[in-house]
Computed example of a mutant assay.
Amino acid sequence: MSTAASITQARSLAGEDPAKRRQILDGARDVFIQMGFDAASMNDVTRAAGVSKSTLYVYFRSKDELFHALICEERERYFEEIEKMFADTDHPVETLRLYGERLARKLTSNAVVRANRAVIGVAERMPELGAMFYEQGPERAIGMLANYLETATADGKLAVDDPRQAAMQFIELSMAGLFRRRLFGHIEAEPDHQEIVNTVGSALRVFMAAYGPKTKAEEHPTELAALDA
């Protein structure tokens, strides 16, 4: 094999060791949690991960890329769980309850609150990072829930006229009084299980009152009023 071919092969294999990539990501996660995104440097990551700077740059070209990889990795695990939940359109009340509780627990967790704060902290200086964070996270979640609501409506289990709007409403209701208070440090600890259950239960009652399957009488309120008269 020629020297040029050897170099090409070596380069093609660079950055493909899963264990080394995992080592770097774990070190970076610790650094970002302890120092915050803006304060952390690639040198800090190399020390925490126990790798050389040259090795780090083989896997990740910048701090932004490293931060994005961490967020994407966590999100993919989360969205895989959600996709399985949304396979059941026959029982929307239970599916939405499970989804709402999972969502509220996830978004009020220490790790996600820190990630949101980090992105907000750099969004003015790096608007593309903020836009990418939103599109690949909240926007994707809205789309998945909207598709579920549309399917459940087509099956007669719900009566949603604007699935996207209804999806955003349910997401906000499921985190009412929890997410923003956590984000701005008004409450420091993650909400307990019962608090999440109560919040999502209330959200579900409001949501189903608006979008539950309609009876014939509900679809024709004038006829119902005439009958009562």
Rank of each mutant, 00 (worst) to 15 (best):
T151W: 07
M132S: 15
G143Q: 10
Y148C: 02
E195S: 01
V58T: 12
M35N: 08
T95Q: 09
A203K: 02
L56N: 03
A28R: 03
A5C: 04
M42P: 02
F86Q: 10
A146C: 11
N198P: 00
E223R: 14
K214F: 04
D228F: 13
G137W: 05
P163A: 07
S54Y: 03
A225K: 13
R21Q: 06
V200T: 05
S41G: 08
S202K: 10
N43R: 14
R47V: 06
A166R: 03
M35D: 05
T95N: 12
I82D: 12
L183C: 01
I71E: 10
S6W: 09
A203R: 01
F37D: 02
G212K: 09
A141V: 03
L13E: 14
T8F: 09
R97T: 06
I33P: 01
R29C: 04
P127I: 10
T8Y: 08
A39V: 06
K84L: 15
A39K: 14
T222N: 13
M168A: 13
Y211Q: 02
L25K: 10
E76C: 05
A87I: 06
R22K: 13
A154H: 10
G50A: 07
A118D: 15
S52N: 09
M132E: 15
C72W: 07
P138G: 08
F170Q: 02
R114I: 03
R77M: 08
E73P: 04
S174Q: 05
A152C: 11
I71K: 08
S6F: 08
H193E: 13
D30L: 12
Y148N: 11
L227I: 15
D162P: 04
A5M: 13
K53T: 09
A4L: 12
A111N: 08
L96W: 03
V206C: 11
M42R: 09
Y211E: 01
I7L: 14
F60W: 04
L98M: 14
G15P: 07
L13M: 14
E83T: 14
A154I: 11
V160I: 11
S202W: 00
R105Q: 14
E128H: 10
G137H: 06
R47H: 10
E65A: 13
G130F: 00
R21W: 01
L178W: 00
S174D: 02
S6H: 12
Y134G: 10
A229R: 12
R140C: 01
R117C: 00
T199E: 00
L25Y: 04
Y134D: 13
G130Q: 09
E124L: 13
T95W: 08
G121K: 03
V160Y: 07
T3E: 15
E150W: 07
H186G: 03
A5T: 13
Q169I: 04
S109Q: 07
A118G: 05
